[in-house]
């Protein structure tokens, strides 16, 4: 786990350099970048979308969104935060299109095929309980993101803050509020189940 932040920093440097080259028209660098991002996109899609056949659609949407929005990346900004935003937006767009296709208004939380950024497994390999995944989904987006980045993705506070685009202090506050809200939600469910 301790090696992970170092690996992230290296990946950030490599991907940033490849993206800058891609913006200048370097096709080889772009292909390499997309191929390197593919497992990461697949992993994230698998964590957010249960339907296996839909996961690949989401991944392709991510790649197309990234291609269309490639001019919005600024070299002085963290690449992973930019990519993470595109990834998250593609998953949300996919969930919305599914809801529209179903011909009825379905809230994202209620869509059985979609669990926003809920991890299927933690870095340690322990699967999250159904109660925990539901409680996570009920958190405000900023708190959920903080809890996921630190405790599910296993990032350091510094890396997680860079990814979320906020200061380390602000991320800690969000994560703290998130844990507090999670505890409250789980306690409520527990009390409800006993009654």
């Amino acid at each position: 786990m301790k090696e992970r932040p170092q690996k992230w920093a290296e990946l950030e440097q490599t991907w940033r350099a490849r993206m800058v080259a891609a913006q200048a028209g370097d096709r080889a660098a772009y292909e390499k970048l997309l191929l390197e991002l593919l497992p990461y996109a697949r992993h994230r899609a698998a964590r957010s979308v249960r339907d296996h056949s839909a996961q690949e659609d989401v991944v392709q949407n991510v790649l197309i969104s990234m291609h269309r929005a490639r001019h919005t990346y600024r070299p002085e900004r963290p690449f992973t935060a930019w990519f993470h935003a595109i990834l998250r937006n593609a998953v949300i767009d996919w969930a919305r299109s599914q809801a529209r296709r179903a011909g009825r208004e379905v809230s994202l939380d209620a869509n059985p095929a979609f669990e926003p950024s809920i991890a299927a497994e933690t870095p340690g390999g322990d699967a999250l309980s159904a109660e925990m995944t539901q409680a996570l989904a009920a958190l405000p987006a900023s708190q959920r993101e903080a809890v996921e980045l630190i405790h599910i993705d296993g990032l350091s506070v510094t890396d997680a803050a860079a990814l979320a685009g906020v200061s380390a202090g602000a991320l800690k506050v969000r994560a703290h509020r998130g844990y507090k809200a999670l505890r409250g939600l789980l306690r409520e469910r527990d009390t409800g189940a006993r009654e």
């Binding site: 191929l35 593919l38 790649l63 070299p75």
Partner: peptide, 22 residues
């Protein structure tokens, strides 16, 4: 399939100018 799409995207790549700072 997705790998093929990546090759297509790379083939169609045109240089772009990054957006200015906000």
């Amino acid at each position: 399939m997705t790998e093929e799409r990546i090759r297509e995207l790379a083939r169609d790549l045109a240089p772009v100018t990054p957006i200015p700072r906000l």
